[in-house]
Design a protein around this nucleic acid. Structure first.
Lengths: 338, 338
DNA sequence: TTGTACGCGTTATCAC
DNA sequence: GTGATAACGCGTACAA
């Protein structure tokens, strides 16, 4: 049924070794021979058996992407960036979501992926997360997204600086009580969350503004959560006049909560998001823009490089951030004045 | 370095054959022996070499998901549903996006995936799309999402009925000029697009309402596109008083276009979307709701079943649809009256 | 119930 | 530049 390398060898009148060399583009093959082998392989519709090739070569021929979520905006886009790069390589992309690490545990990826991948690509997860930490035991290169770790390649943005930029923008607008819609209570298994928290706090401290627990609420990175968080903040004794949400989706929920309370974003309460989600433009949301697809693409490229040059020293890449100011942020006005 | 089956056999004092049988849960193994082998394997941290196992057994141990996009809402959610099911199986999930079939061609998935998957899961793509049609030559089961084809398993919704329901809702509200924001000009490589077009037309024809080219505009399934499409429709000599958008995201754009023109969704122009996107609630959009993640999950389950029982006759599964009515649709009022 | 031994389709190491 | 041939690690008839 399926052609084997021997069929090609026989048909081309050469040995299997030569077929192997010819097809893989290795040197020391007569151009004429190579071409003949190519023709025969083409004609007989031959494709190498990956299983056999992998067994013989010792290479797995694939890389695994470990992500907490697949369906969420950020992760989908990063994944897309990764896939586009890998498409151009010879490697298979194995997708493995580990779900929310705080939920019921699935089989840790390490155990299931043992011996079957040449490298890992990890999105957003802290390297000490249970189920993630184990992948470093495997002796394959790892490219980290949104995190760093000794001996690993990594790509990401400066979350601390991004959060600072967002909060500083609010400070510049005269706000003094600046709230935070975070993901969940620290510590979290997501690095960006920690870092944005630090950036938020640093900006406030530098400006000698209060950092109160009362100014923070968890939004769990969902629209619903953001809405609840904003509602919570509004119900506080002394509510913030501006809010920094750690993601655009949570900011969307915050905007909705404001409107539900008869408040106008920007005019009554300023909101800054984080991501550069397409909808932010449509909802007139000021936000920190990160190059999401490119983050994925660069990480994939880094991993490919690591596989090509095993000895090369891992690099850390930080991609630039931007801020788009829209109507959701404005100068602070005393609410009683309006 | 890495343990082999022989190491386990030696350590457990049995043959490799017994180790293989014991570890795979095959019958005809003394429970005591099996347990001992298990213990040894556990202790030595042994995992089978997938390459060797696949070569020997002839099974690829993985399935491929073919999708046009990864980053878009619908596809990300379907993919997530698939992944959750596959996570519980022994199969690897190979992700392969083929991009927009009308764009520059990448390597067709068939060629790259030959001999390396036990089955295919195809999302939304017409089976006669170039690069997709070839996968049926491989002699492996295929589960189709949003499409059907002889000999294939399939899962989806009734797009014709869904579109009909949306348009009928508008008709019931008294609208007579009902516009359509479609994806792109027919023919398209996406089945849902064709079917929703049919449902739109059928509903209008049944109600003896006009089906004019002037009432249709392409939105390419993006927010931006939907906005442009709505703008186009509003500029027509005799613009529609209601619009059915083939996706929620296009509907979001349409809502924005309306506001940009000083029109109020629902009051001035009614809009119905399609999907059940989380944001639709926040934007007060009436929409047809489909169980997206479940579509993916069911398709994956179908494929697993097909792999387990190769002789079983393929089934076609149609999942139920719902409609959520919100503020974006309302009784038609003569615009001059307002 | 268990063991033996061959085959799976390549790659890689030698010789030539 | 090319050809034998020994791995690679496991699954599986077949025999015991």
């Amino acid at each position: 049924m399926a052609m084997t390398i021997r069929d090609i060898a026989r048909e081309a009148g050469v040995s299997t070794a030569t077929v192997s060399r010819a097809l893989r583009g290795l040197p020391n093959v007569d151009p004429v021979t190579r071409e003949r082998v190519r023709q025969v392989a083409e004609r007989l519709d031959y494709v190498v058996s990956p299983a056999a090739s992998r067994l013989a070569s010792g290479r797995a021929g694939s890389i695994a992407v470990i992500t907490p979520y697949i369906a969420r905006w950020y992760f989908g886009r990063v994944l897309s960036g990764i896939e586009k790069v890998l498409q151009g390589s010879e490697l298979d992309l194995l997708l493995s979501s580990i779900g929310d690490p705080s939920e019921t545990h699935r089989v840790p990826p390490h155990r299931k992926l043992r011996r079957r991948v040449d490298g890992f690509l990890v999105i957003s997860l802290s390297t000490d997360t249970e189920g993630v930490n184990e992948i470093f035991e495997a002796d394959v290169p790892v490219a980290l997204i949104d995190t760093e770790r000794e001996g690993c390649w990594s790509v990401g943005i400066d979350d601390v600086a991004g959060a600072r930029m967002a909060v500083q923008h609010l400070i510049n607008l005269g706000h003094e009580r600046i709230g935070l819609i975070s993901g969940r209570p620290l510590p979290t298994p997501f690095r960006p969350e920690e870092n944005r928290w630090v950036g938020y706090r640093d900006a406030l401290v530098d400006a000698e503004l209060p950092v109160e627990p009362d100014l923070e609420a968890c939004g769990h990175f969902t629209i619903e959560g953001g809405e609840r968080a904003m509602t919570t903040l509004l119900a506080r004794p002394n509510p913030p006049t501006a809010v920094f949400a750690m993601s655009d989706e949570m900011a969307f929920g915050a905007l909705r909560a404001l409107r539900a309370h008869g408040l106008q974003p920007g005019r009554d309460v300023s909101v800054v998001g984080f991501d550069g989600h397409e909808m932010s433009e449509h909802l007139d949301l000021t936000t920190i823009v990160q190059p999401v697809e490119e983050i994925g693409a660069r990480a994939a490229m880094a991993l490919l490089e690591a596989l090509d040059h095993p000895t090369r020293e891992p690099q850390q890449l930080t991609l630039p951030l931007g801020m788009v100011v829209r109507g959701s942020t404005a100068f602070r006005r005393d609410r009683s004045t309006s």
